[in-house]
Design a protein around this nucleic acid. Structure first.
Lengths: 147, 147
DNA sequence: CTGATATAGTTAGATATCAAATTAAAGGAT
DNA sequence: ATCCTTTAATTTGATATCTAACTATATCAG
């Protein structure tokens, strides 16, 4: 197989894995929750960045600002985050996680244990350890390409 | 890092790579074309399956039948595929690629060369060769989990 | 044959995602 | 100070995707 075909096949496998994982994880989340929203909550809990502009969240997740606007609007509606004007920049906003948001994140983490456990049972741990650094490096290179 | 955290990180990297690749590839396709539609066209050209039921396409791409209905409806509207009732099954349909569909697929392949070339330039070929079999195996295992 | 169950496809309603256009504010150049 | 450019966020309109509910046909059990 040529290099190009391999690369193509690689992206193909990644697309399918992503879809399978997405569907499996999404199916156990509390009603109304999505992986995109969970990602935002998890980001706040893990990094504890305080109040951040939507654009920073957008670039952390590699989505457009329009996409982040959409997600954050829904999350504000369900009171998982709070959004206030940025006092230092009249164009901007600042987003922070609420107590409800933290609780919801805990709920999600708990529910995600089950499908993770299932995945662990079929997936070779060594395989994951082998794959991870390569994928991280690939992601980083593709990311640089974007600029 | 625990096994579970590694697995989680793995899915995370995969999600981001998928998004980056998706966006880059989608941006060079002819107006109106999408990766989902290209995937269907490519499937027909590579495997030459003749006329196939929508359900088979859905399972080939690991999407729901509803999703495939949506994609095929658009593709039929733009005359990239032809859809007729299945003479052997009153519930079913049969989908085949049209001459326009083949031309469109060629167009897409040509346009995809450019971003593929860029990716090739930053991505280590050996890295891809290392990754691919592991990803294929991972995909297959996750796939089995679904049933 | 008839009734229950399974399967193929669609529809409805939701979220995520993008690109392009718009609005408003910040920053820089002269 | 004024104009131009850039940046932050939103809106609009599109596709992809899911689940759940529905229709129609097929299949199987008795």
């Amino acid at each position: 197989m040529s290099d190009r075909a391999s690369l193509f096949a690689l992206f193909n496998e990644i697309a399918i894995i992503n879809q399978l994982a997405n569907t499996a994880f999404a199916s156990v989340l509390p009603a109304g929750m999505t992986l995109a929203q969970f990602g935002v909550l998890n980001h706040f809990v893990r990094l504890d960045p305080g109040a951040v502009p939507p654009k920073d969240l957008a670039s952390a997740f590699q989505v457009t600002r329009a996409t982040m606007t959409s997600t954050l609007t829904r999350m504000e509606r369900s009171e998982l985050v709070e959004i206030v004007p940025n006092p230092d920049d009249g164009r901007g906003k600042l987003v922070s996680i609420t107590a409800e948001g933290r609780e919801m994140r805990e709920q999600c983490i708990m529910r995600l244990q089950e499908p993770m456990k299932e995945a662990e049972q079929v997936v070779d741990v060594e395989e994951v350890e082998t794959l991870l650094p390569h994928l991280t490096s690939l992601r980083s290179k593709l990311d640089n390409l974007r600029d």
